[in-house]
Simulated assay, not measured.
Amino acid sequence: MDLNTVLEVRDARLGVPPSVSWGSAPWRTGDAWLGGGTYLFSEPQPHLRRLVDLSRMGWEPLTRQPDGSLEIAATCTIAQLSRFARTLRAPAAPLFEQCCRAFLASFKIWNMATVGGNLCNGLPAGPMISLTAALDGTALLQAQDGTLRRTKVADFITGAGRKDLAEGELLRSVTLPARTLAARTAFRQASLYGLGRSGALVTGALDPLDGSLAVTVTAATVRPFRLWFPTAPDARELRDTIEWTVGDGDWFDDIHGLSAWRRHMTLRLSEEIRQELGREAGR
């Protein structure tokens, strides 16, 4: 779609303040960061006047850190993440491809959409939210003056389409810790129709060191809920924890699924994950 209110597309490397090493154009009202552009160009954006293009920043898409953690650049595309996951030697590797395939995406979107864009849209069905929240990811955010701060992905998304970003602030990357990359994972997804948008997406991550279990609820809720259990729970404990944690107003409701159906499927899929990973944990 043409964005006929946009008057300028600016390279983010231009106009860099001396104190900022990563690049930034001075921010003003009507600006938006441009990553892959698959959302920006999908519908009218009458409030926008300028796009600040991140595509030439040269950030390494995926980097294994010395401590074993994995840093995913905001500009990493879904296609790049999928290709990397096929070579990743870690127990959690299957979850990457499962979440990539949960994308409702054409060939063009698959190769252009970015991990950062999916997170910053904050849509309940965003599968990169599901992936990074499930693996206890930490988002690195950078302000216009170069100031850095970090926040958990599960806290970064605050509601449907809402995120913890200040004006002009940029999501630079997401880091997944080595410990969760070593976790045994499980994945369940439900949609109203084949290859449709996720109505409920639940993941599980079993810690190999202490046997703790994290169950992460997304798509069915307005924001991700990562529920941590010191040991694999029984069926009643899991159900009660979900019911106590996810309030009535937290269940999402739209054309892709009523809130009652999303709640029902979340409870069902969570129990399947508990049984799958609980057997490995000896529960």
Rank of each mutant, 00 (worst) to 15 (best):
A186F: 01
A125K: 00
A139P: 05
Q144V: 12
W59Q: 13
Q144T: 15
A154M: 03
L34Q: 04
M1H: 15
S42L: 11
I157G: 01
L40Y: 14
P233S: 03
W27F: 07
E280C: 06
G247S: 11
S21A: 14
H47F: 13
R64D: 11
V246M: 04
V217G: 01
L14G: 10
F229I: 06
D136N: 11
A183N: 03
T29K: 12
Q45H: 15
T180A: 05
P26M: 13
R188M: 11
E237F: 07
G58S: 10
A74I: 00
V16E: 05
D253P: 02
S130A: 15
H47M: 11
E8D: 15
E243N: 09
S270H: 01
L267C: 09
S82I: 01
R101H: 10
Q65G: 07
R83Y: 10
P46T: 12
Q275K: 07
A232R: 00
T216C: 11
V153D: 04
T77R: 03
E272T: 07
K108M: 07
A74F: 01
R101C: 04
G126A: 15
R263P: 00
N121W: 12
G58H: 12
A133D: 05
L209N: 11
R239L: 07
L206S: 01
R283P: 04
T158Q: 04
A182N: 08
G30C: 07
S24R: 14
G23L: 11
R149H: 09
A232V: 04
V16A: 10
A235Y: 04
A154F: 02
L48I: 03
L148F: 12
R13T: 06
L3W: 11
G30V: 08
R64V: 13
R239G: 09
R236K: 11
A281E: 06
G117T: 00
R236Y: 06
Q98H: 13
P224A: 07
A190H: 09
H264L: 08
R226A: 06
T138P: 03
P127D: 15
Q189Y: 05
F84Q: 03
T158L: 09
R28V: 08
L81Q: 03
E169Q: 10
R226E: 02
L171P: 01
L209R: 08
T241S: 14
R28Q: 14
D67F: 08
W244L: 14
P17G: 14
M112Y: 10
L171C: 06
P127A: 10
L201V: 11
E167C: 11
T77A: 02
A74K: 00
D155Q: 14
R197C: 08
I78M: 11
